[in-house]
Design a protein around this nucleic acid. Sequence first.
DNA 1: CTGTCGATGATCGAGTTCCGTTCGGTGACG
DNA 2: CGTCACCGAACGGAACTCGATCATCGACAG
Lengths: 213, 213
Amino acid sequence: MSFNDLISGALTTTGQVRNEPVQARSSERIGALLDAASAVVAEVGIERLTTAMVAERAGASIGTVYRYFPDRIAVLSAMSLRGFERFLRKSVDNLEAASPSTIDGVFDCLIDASVEMHRTEPGYTSIRLSDQIALPEVEGGTTSARVAGPLAAILTDELGVVDDDLVNRLDIALTIADALIVRAFISAPRGDEAAIAATRAVVGSYLGSSVHA
Amino acid sequence: MSFNDLISGALTTTGQVRNEPVQARSSERIGALLDAASAVVAEVGIERLTTAMVAERAGASIGTVYRYFPDRIAVLSAMSLRGFERFLRKSVDNLEAASPSTIDGVFDCLIDASVEMHRTEPGYTSIRLSDQIALPEVEGGTTSARVAGPLAAILTDELGVVDDDLVNRLDIALTIADALIVRAFISAPRGDEAAIAATRAVVGSYLGSSVHA
DNA sequence: CTGTCGATGATCGAGTTCCGTTCGGTGACG
DNA sequence: CGTCACCGAACGGAACTCGATCATCGACAG
């Protein structure tokens, strides 16, 4: 049990490509298609993304898009999933680099990872917002719920946190963090620094008052 | 200045019907169309709502839908706006009935109103989630931002709250409340009672630690 | 080791279907 | 009888399909 288990624990969904690619170039194609989709979302928004735009920007044909994704929404879902994976990867990297000894420290790593995602990944903020409902195909419950379980195990194991309702409290803390970070990126494209700082403060305060090590 | 000013303060947008109805039956039609849209959203989600579904369920023809709304997204925007209006109305009713003397009391009224909206209005949860991004046409910034301003004025005026950063803190509190209530309705269709109670506690705790009367 | 060959994966894009939107005609109100 | 409300066939464009074509790779002979 280590920080790295966060990834395997939170990633239960397999992915929603139509046919698993066999040749190497396919994986690149899928990546290129998702990059294109991400850029298109950042430009025109989720609602106005067309499969033709994605294909053209990726230098592929319409048919290729539909070879890998069953429909338009699946492209968005896959974008969402890849973003989630990257967020987890960044989180684990941060955790292993910082080796935090408090829950606040752990959340700082997660918040940093999330902020970086919003900064580097075009369209991530849009996707994050529509996640649950506009994309009901994304299975496995809320993002926060998927992270809360494995995170609780890690906290108990690594930091010796004892709390009979830890999963629930983590879920709440993650939901709050997510909402406030998105808020920071709605009010400013590069993320409102004061709002990000406020996120850390609020989450820290919540965890401090309810979770004890 | 009274609780009732919350409505006029937060509702700056005028509405997006194409032609203001002249005859009485028109208003009923619009209501019926929005009811139908709400039901469709609850059933198939925002992405898969088609104008034909809305028309059929409202017992109207396609043409009638387009007589009142310029396009598909406008139907969703109008749904969102009507929901927001109803939320404000309920909030003011609750506030006038309870005459709260603390900020916590005020937020209890707002939370009650929000919970009731999620319970009674099919599709409200979906619309609430996609608010900002999937419907960029909804002007005036975040819901929380639109409420925070007028609410701050009321709190200062009615309860004598003094806080130089009140608007910002209210925005945060409203964002948290919104996210946690939506969370409660994602995990259970009728709203998870424990999660709703947790929402009250978290928001109360945040306001208590940061806003002083 | 190299070149050929067949099988299967990958790509393409014209064609089909479905959905958003328009518009001219018909009925209802006042 | 003029205006308002309503309808639904028709249009355009976007989602999605499918058979044809090209690329890759292992097998096998020379």
